[in-house]
Design a protein around this nucleic acid. Structure first.
Lengths: 193, 193
DNA sequence: CACCTAATTAGATATATATCAAATTCATTT
DNA sequence: AAATGAATTTGATATATATCTAATTAGGTG
């Protein structure tokens, strides 16, 4: 997959404090002060690390009254576990690279050099590749007003309504009371290798 | 597991150049200049990164004439993959921690505060924990003369001969023409959780 | 032995980042 | 509206490290 995503994951995990946070959260959600207490660090330090962990989608948070609970996102762990397992197998590495090249070709074909989408592919597989490319600019866990989402899509293509609808149909996003949010990757319409 | 080992692994993987090297080697061994060429970097830089990758046992090398070929150590990838998978499962996390605590107790019981082994445990499970602790100072892929290995073991205990033999019996190491080398972890006598 | 090629080491530079104290924001409760 | 408690932001400091050039080491070959 995109190396950047991998590198960010490892770079983030490559810190003793963050690993300890991950192990703590692996046993269940905790609030900030609790983490700070257990690790003997100050709240700003914990915030700093939780920001990094959130950047790679490894934690998300929920507010209860006035304290914020942090949760581990298990699906990211599973994904990364599978990448490592594949790396140990030459056949799988080959498949990954082929998929990657194919994907790159499709992106090159359907996007102009300044990043606009020329048109929506008719072939399902290519269409999904294009959508996965489009949603890369959206943040997991963030809530989007319909208007805001439209604006985002318009960067790439006029027909934001169609694309927005496709995002829902293919389970990249879900809508609730007019608010849109990304689904976790394991719910997306799969591109079979 | 020891957090340090994990942190070192992630810290090392958390660099774009090293990830690229890992992907290259995942397709098969390469020599230094080849890697430098493919990545557009200078040989000293490659040496720098290969040192780090070797430190976490992720690559080992073999010399052929006067070029050195670097290989990926797949067993490390598999191990790390499994750690990530377990982290996504609360039950497994609990088991890991319990095993860890138990292990720490045994080590504390059988080693003096300055790191000497008091005696070889009679119970098989404890014995294996002690051996796994002992071999932590040995480098994967390095070839040890019998004399050198004896010296290493003597740091911990007088009776190097017995311990050296136990290393072989329990498949922590193998011997060939009087030269000793570590086996990959998946061959070791297992401590069942 | 002299030469060649590959790899490593040493030293320099530039960049990133973990942590804390102090100040600030934000939501809830009185 | 004021007060409380949790989380975040800001700014400062100290430490680590990726990369390069130049110099060195090590093995192999004529």
């Amino acid at each position: 997959m995109q190396l950047n995503r991998l590198v960010s994951f490892y770079k983030t995990m490559g810190d003793p404090t963050r690993i300890r946070i991950v192990f703590l959260l692996a046993k269940g959600p905790l609030h900030g002060q609790a983490i700070a207490g257990k690790l003997g660090l100050t709240p700003p330090t914990i915030t700093h690390h939780l920001n990094k962990l959130r950047d790679i989608n490894l934690v998300y948070q929920r507010r209860d009254k006035n304290t914020v609970y942090f949760y581990l996102n298990e699906s990211v762990l599973k994904q990364q576990s599978s990448v490592l397992a594949k790396l140990a197998d030459k056949e799988e590495v080959k498949k990954m690279e082929e998929l990657n090249i194919e994907n790159q070709k499709v992106i090159d074909n359907f996007f102009t050099s300044d990043g606009k989408l020329k048109n929506i592919p008719a072939q399902r597989k290519k269409k999904l590749m294009v959508f996965e490319h489009l949603i890369k600019g959206l943040k997991m866990g963030k809530k989007y007003e319909e208007k805001e989402l439209n604006e985002y899509i318009k960067q790439f293509h006029e027909d934001y309504a169609t694309i927005r609808r496709e995002f829902i149909i293919n389970h990249y996003m879900y809508r609730e009371n007019g608010i849109y949010e990304l689904n976790p990757p394991e719910m997306w319409a799969k591109i079979e290798g």
